[in-house]
Design a protein around this nucleic acid. Structure first.
Length: 181
DNA sequence: TAGTGTGTTTCTTATATAGGTCGTATCC
DNA sequence: GGATACGACCTATATAAGAAACACACTA
């Protein structure tokens, strides 16, 4: 069972912004501090995703917990900008998912040293002194998997949920093949 | 040597995972 | 003062974006 914990997307409005003015128009939900970072942050509520908007019209949405939620939030953002006269509907050029961070569990403790050997040392990085997880990069997958001794794992780097599930299935198969699961 | 141009790195944000370290607080 | 407990933060992973700070190469 793969669960999305963070979905990241980026988009583009065909319009340049004076972020100081936009932040002023949006009020307390916007935060723009050019001395700290060139992007303007927008957050609708404490637990909502975060939007970073740039002068060029490009923007990033982080912190959604599903792909649908990411698109819904994007629509909410577009609505906010249109309602405040910041953009018009036809200024919306594109929006796409860039990265998914997912978790899964194999429900069994794992010997990461043995797993690193079994999966192939050229495809794994395991340095417990540096980081407790095993990093698994398989060229046939478009995701990177962090595997922990508790049997839990983090799958990241893909923009497609089907690819994430394929990566999870692949690892289940590998664990079965290696008789470590 | 100084100035200019180009390229690279860092910063920031979200998020899970887990081990280690560090600082602070509480108790004896 | 020493021992223990706890929280915060670091480590690593991916990704987008723009700006600033660098490093390096080249020309005058």
């Amino acid at each position: 069972m793969v669960e999305v914990v963070n979905a990241v997307g980026s988009g583009f409005f065909d319009r340049e912004f004076d972020l100081s003015v936009v932040a002023g128009d949006l009020g307390s939900i916007a935060n723009f501090d050019p001395d700290n970072y060139p992007g303007m942050y927008i957050r609708f509520s404490e637990d909502s995703p975060l939007v970073t908007v740039y002068r060029t019209g490009k923007y990033i949405v982080t912190g959604a917990d599903s792909v649908d939620g990411l698109h819904e939030f994007n629509e909410k953002l577009i609505g906010l900008f249109c309602d405040n006269g910041i953009i018009e509907r036809n200024d919306v050029e594109w929006f796409e998912v860039q990265n998914l961070v997912c978790t899964t569990s194999f429900d069994k403790d794992l010997n990461l040293s043995a797993l690193a050997i079994g999966l192939g040392l050229e495809q794994t990085e395991y340095e417990p002194e540096q980081f407790p997880g095993l990093v698994y990069r398989n060229p046939s997958l478009d995701s990177v998997i962090l595997i922990f001794s508790t049997g839990k794992a983090v799958i990241t780097g893909s923009s497609d949920l089907d690819e994430v599930e394929a990566a999870s299935d692949h690892l289940v198969d590998e664990l079965a093949r290696l008789q470590l699961n």
